[in-house]
Amino acid sequence: MQSFNRAISGFFNLVITPFKAMDPIWSLALFSLLIGIIMLVIFRYTSDQQKIREAKSRIRAHIFELSLFKDEIGIVLSAQKNILIYNLRYIKYALKPMLFMMIPLALILIQLESWYGHRPLKPDESAIVSLKLRDNGLALSDITLTAGEGITVETPPLRIPDRNEIDWRIRALENGDQVLTFNVPGDEIRQKVIVSERGLVQVSPLASASVSGFTDTLLNPALSPLPGDSPVERISIDYPAMSIEIYKWHVHWLVIVLVLSIVFGFALKGLFGVEI
């Protein structure tokens, strides 16, 4: 799973690299274009284009019938019934390619979330760092946290025993990959904290976790794996959510991708000879 993650992350990193210093809208537009094209290609080769074309023609024909015989109640009802039937057939024909699209789309969106969902800390910004222990008998009071030069730990540990959790508040001081060191009995865990004022950086609020968490690994491509025998279950850093602004509105990146990829898909369907 790790190798797979690394490969996909590497690809996305490669694509995003020229855009890192730009407004995120540019790279989102590019990914939307790629998603639009990928979806068109999948649709083209996994759907029965002829049957889709036929279903759409039938729907158009019956709509035309409606306008021609709008005073004939019998014909109108029959046309409406047929429109409904061919709509359902159209949905049936579209279902198969949609199923084929789901997996690559989910992988792409997970990757995009790791780039556009959150942003790094800026200098002078604070964040909560949480460490969760496994049920292994270790006392929370045995765990300490020390910070490297570009970062500081502002609070004493806040321990929540019934959750096996310790929280601290950290504050970024300087740009760069800063380091926190968790001293756990028998272990020392170094955790990177990304501090950056500009540019796209892949960050994950779930910063480190034991590799046994398959879902966590899949959903957090920027995750650093912890050894399977680590007493620590996970470390998380509440990186701020990224805000993408369009005309004074804060828009979630997913909305931008959804809208743009649909626009690109419809714009390019003729070029790719796809009947949607």
């Binding site: 407004d23 809208i25 540019w26 537009a29 274009l33 993408i244 602004e245 369009i246 005309y247 004074k248 931008i256 743009l260 626009v263 690109f264 419809f266 714009a267 390019l268 369907k269 003729g270 070029l271 000879g273």
Partner: peptide, 26 residues
């Protein structure tokens, strides 16, 4: 195909420009 290509170019250029000019409008 020609029609679709021109439409594609129109959408590919026009919509991002609108969006991006919006982003810069702040």
């Amino acid at each position: 195909s020609k029609f679709s290509l021109s439409k594609a170019i129109l959408f590919s250029v026009f919509i991002p420009v609108i969006l991006i000019s919006g982003a810069c409008g702040e």
